[in-house]
Design a protein around this nucleic acid. Structure first.
Lengths: 209, 209
DNA sequence: TAGATTGTTAATCGATTAACAATC
DNA sequence: TAGATTGTTAATCGATTAACAATC
């Protein structure tokens, strides 16, 4: 059995489909089509059908897809029917905001640990969490198998990333505005608002008076 | 003169190059090569040369690129040699975190306005900003030509986006976990941590005990 | 049944890579 | 000069789209 690898681009679109489907479900929509879903995420119907066909046959000719069923399939494929433990590292404004964000649990994640290196913060409470010492990462507190949201300053990010890799962390959501060098089996997703703004600035016509 | 359009994929990589170059500059590195830069952003040297060639010839055979000069070129191309005004809409945890983030100014942006719809917040101070009423968007307070960071709840996002479009906003950095439908001349960049986490969860081997 | 929509194949389109002459 | 690296062309690779038989 040749297990043909699903291209990255396709995988990266699945969460977008899932989010749109859950939005439909919230609005009590029970059925959709590649056409309909496509219009809601700005992706062609053909593309959506092609993407889904990588994983199975989830639709019915003539009627389309059952929203609830397709959600279940996508959650299974993305492995988010279970809930993953996530650690937040760096309890500045961003780290705090993330711990207070209510949108994780019903989408497959929960924050279990918070770390900082500031002695003034270590041991103190942040909502329901007690902030642990970054220095303890890799000691008793093993993060193996967990995901990490990295919210430390740019200058500290690579060093901590190295530590995380040593600890067996395989997925880092990086809020620090730097590229992280990690082994090929470790995934990194980048969130940098400035990158987003710059990508748009290119297209603006200088209306900035 | 056919002004050949630069593909989106290429534009989207430029901010990544720029960020890496500025990081080098911070470390007093004066010269780089496509090889070197590529290794720092995980992109092939050929790709980087090809991308840059869309905009001109910035390097020198044998020696590569001058970091400072290439930064200047990229800033010009991305239109971030100037500073763009950005409004934050929705002053929850995320909105607040953004207003307190120090990383915008030296990369081409500054926050000029903050909005919320909560009467308890409107008129109050958030750092150096006085929170304005969302209802006033489109009245005296015109956002034309500005960029917007949208940090309102998912349920409110589309409605506000419509209002922004009417106001002449052409660029929205959307933190709300929903797709926004906007006219083709309006750019949207999405930031949703859960999408990032889900993209990575797909690749994890169930070590989640 | 007629209309709608799937899953899939083949055609098209675009992006990435490899290779190299030019040249610093 | 010899070594390094550019910008660019052609070759390759991969992703998107169009089209349609199958079928609900």
């Amino acid at each position: 059995m040749v297990d043909r690898v699903v291209p990255d681009v396709i995988v990266s679109r699945l969460p977008v489909y899932l989010r749109a489907l859950q939005f439909m479900q919230m609005q009590a929509v029970t059925t959709t089509s590649s056409q309909d879903l496509g219009s809601k995420v700005n992706i062609s119907a053909a593309q959506i059908r092609k993407d889904l066909s990588q994983f199975g046959e989830f639709g019915k000719q003539g009627t389309g897809y059952n929203v609830e069923a397709l959600i279940a399939h996508l959650e299974k494929i993305l492995q988010v029917e279970k809930v993953w433990d996530v650690a937040v590292i760096g309890m500045g404004d961003m780290g705090h905001a993330l711990t207070r964000y209510g949108g994780f649990l019903n989408r497959g994640f929960r924050i279990t640990d918070c770390f900082d290196n500031d002695p003034a913060k270590i041991g103190s409470q942040a909502g329901q969490y007690i902030i642990k010492d970054v220095a303890d990462i890799g000691k008793g507190d093993c993060l193996r198998g967990k995901m990490v949201m990295l919210c430390v300053p740019a200058a500290a990010a690579q060093k901590i990333a190295n530590k995380l890799v040593e600890c067996g962390v395989k997925a880092i959501l990086n809020y620090a505005p730097v590229h992280l060098s990690v082994p090929a089996d470790v995934r990194v997703q980048y969130i940098d608002p400035v990158i987003g703004l710059q990508r748009m600035a290119y297209y603006l016509h200088e209306k900035n008076e």
